[in-house]
Simulated assay, not measured.
Amino acid sequence: MSTPRIHLLRAVNVGGAKLPMARLRELAAGLGATEVSTYIASGNLLCVPPGDPAAFDRALEQAVQDEFGFFREVISRSADQLAAALAAYPFAPAVSGHICFLSGVPDPDRAAEFCARDFGAGEKLAVIGADLHLDYPGGAGTTRLSAPVIAKGLGVPGTARNLRTVATLIDLARA
């Protein structure tokens, strides 16, 4: 039996990018994934992908674009990778903690410069590997740190989840 992975789609069911989770499950199964499930309606897909996970991610991106007319990155991790990111979270206790899972490891100098910037709401940032750890003291709704700002600043796109969602995804993938 293969191990389920967590496939995170960036920015679905916000800003007009409507993607029903039932249809996402169908698309994944149609691409050969097994043990397919979703968690909440924000682009959290759990499944055992056929073959190479990165190739599955690209195929899922294409399937979503073909059917819904918008492109959204798919970034996947194993439950162990999510657990390691959660364990490495440096801002305890977090007020409003998130981890932005990046599509790759950003350039270290660029990451250091980005994390040193003041975004105006007291955000705390740290890049650890291919993950951007965030704490929003005023809540995530007060920040100017949008996905495009992060992608431009770090040179790689990502998708963020709050710490509670990350913990739940780990539990679901390991169940």
Rank of each mutant, 00 (worst) to 15 (best):
residue 7 H to Y: 15
residue 30 G to A: 09
residue 137 P to K: 03
residue 3 T to A: 15
residue 144 R to I: 11
residue 125 L to G: 04
residue 150 I to R: 08
residue 38 T to D: 07
residue 57 D to S: 13
residue 144 R to H: 13
residue 100 C to E: 01
residue 137 P to W: 01
residue 122 G to N: 09
residue 109 D to P: 06
residue 52 D to R: 12
residue 123 E to W: 07
residue 122 G to R: 09
residue 169 L to Q: 04
residue 100 C to S: 12
residue 73 E to W: 15
residue 67 E to G: 08
residue 144 R to A: 15
residue 35 E to I: 12
residue 141 G to W: 02
residue 132 L to A: 05
residue 21 M to T: 00
residue 40 I to C: 06
residue 60 L to I: 05
residue 18 K to E: 14
residue 6 I to E: 05
residue 160 A to N: 08
residue 35 E to Q: 15
residue 142 T to P: 10
residue 155 G to M: 03
residue 49 P to V: 04
residue 119 F to M: 00
residue 30 G to Y: 08
residue 161 R to F: 02
residue 76 S to N: 06
residue 137 P to F: 04
residue 45 L to S: 03
residue 99 I to W: 00
residue 35 E to G: 14
residue 77 R to H: 11
residue 39 Y to K: 05
residue 77 R to K: 13
residue 95 V to N: 12
residue 33 A to W: 03
residue 96 S to I: 09
residue 166 V to Y: 04
residue 139 G to L: 10
residue 170 I to V: 07
residue 135 D to L: 05
residue 60 L to V: 03
residue 113 E to Q: 15
residue 128 I to C: 14
residue 104 G to V: 08
residue 33 A to V: 00
residue 156 V to Y: 00
residue 162 N to S: 01
residue 162 N to T: 07
residue 43 G to W: 04
residue 58 R to P: 07
residue 138 G to R: 15
residue 100 C to K: 05
residue 50 P to V: 13
residue 149 V to G: 03
residue 171 D to M: 14
residue 95 V to R: 15
residue 34 T to P: 02
residue 86 L to G: 01
residue 82 L to Q: 03
residue 167 A to H: 08
residue 170 I to L: 01
residue 113 E to A: 15
residue 135 D to S: 09
residue 73 E to K: 14
residue 102 L to S: 08
